Amino acid sequence: MEHQAQYSDLLQLSKELDHIYHEVSLKMGLSDSGFSLLYALCERGVPTAPSELYAEWSLSKQTGHSALLALERRGLVALSPDPRDGRGKLVALTPAGAVYVKQTIQPLMAAERSSFARLTGEEQNQLVALTEKSVILLKEELSGLLSGPAGTQL
C-alpha cells in the first residue's frame, strides 16, 4: 500500500533543505544571511543594490545590513555609490570575494544543478510546477489572514 503524503512530510523536507544549507554556511564560516548574500552576488554577477538582495532572500533590512557589514569586514564585498541614484549604494564582490565564491559557492551551485539534472525532464517540470502551485495556493489561503491593518499583504 502506497504512503499518502501529508503536509508534514513536505514541511520536514523543507526543514531538511534548510538544515543542509545551514550546515554549508557554517562550514564556510558564514552566517545563513551572509551565505545568502554571497550566493545572490555570485548568481547575479553584477553590483546590486543591497535592498534588492535583501528582498530576494527575504531578509529584513537589519539582518541583511548586519550580514553585509560582516562580509565587508572580511574583505569579501565592497559598497560603492550607485551611479543611477546618488544616495544609493551597490554591493559587489571584491577580488578576494570572487576567489572565495569560486572555491565555495560555485561548487555548491554545481552540485545543485547536478542533483536537479539527475531528475528526468518530466520530474524537473513536475517539481517546479507543483512547488509553484503550492506556493500560490498557500498565499491564497493566507491572504485573508495576513491582510488588513495589522498584517501585510503577501
Rank of each mutant, 00 (worst) to 15 (best):
G75D: 01
T152N: 04
Y21D: 04
G64S: 11
Y7D: 11
L145G: 02
P50G: 13
E123D: 01
L127C: 08
A49H: 13
R84L: 09
E2Y: 13
G34I: 00
D82M: 07
S58L: 15
S66P: 04
E23G: 01
F116S: 12
R44I: 14
V24H: 15
L71Y: 02
L93S: 03
P50I: 09
E72T: 06
H3G: 08
A150G: 04
P50V: 09
E56R: 12
Q153H: 08
A150S: 04
E122R: 11
A96V: 07
P107K: 12
E16Y: 07
D32A: 11
L30Y: 06
L59C: 05
S58M: 14
E123F: 02
S33T: 04
R113S: 10
T131C: 00
S115E: 09
H3T: 13
R87V: 15
V24L: 15
W57R: 12
A78G: 05
A49P: 01
L17C: 15
Q126I: 13
H65R: 07
T94E: 01
T48V: 13
E112Y: 11
V77N: 08
G86K: 03
A117F: 01
Y7N: 11
V46N: 12
S66D: 05
E52Q: 15
G45Q: 05
P95K: 07
E123H: 02
L138Y: 08
S115A: 14
L142F: 09
M28T: 06
P47M: 09
E141A: 07
S25N: 07
G148K: 00
S66A: 06
Q124M: 03
L68H: 07
C42N: 11
D18Y: 05
Q62F: 12
Y39F: 09
L130H: 06
E122C: 08
Q124G: 02
M1V: 11
R87Q: 15
T120N: 03
G121H: 04
L53W: 02
A117N: 00
E112L: 14
R113H: 06
S115R: 05
A49W: 05
G148T: 02
M1Y: 14
G75N: 00
A150L: 05
E122Q: 11
G64H: 08
T63W: 03
E122K: 10
Y21E: 14
V77T: 12
A129P: 03
R73L: 04
D85Y: 09
T120Q: 04
L10A: 11
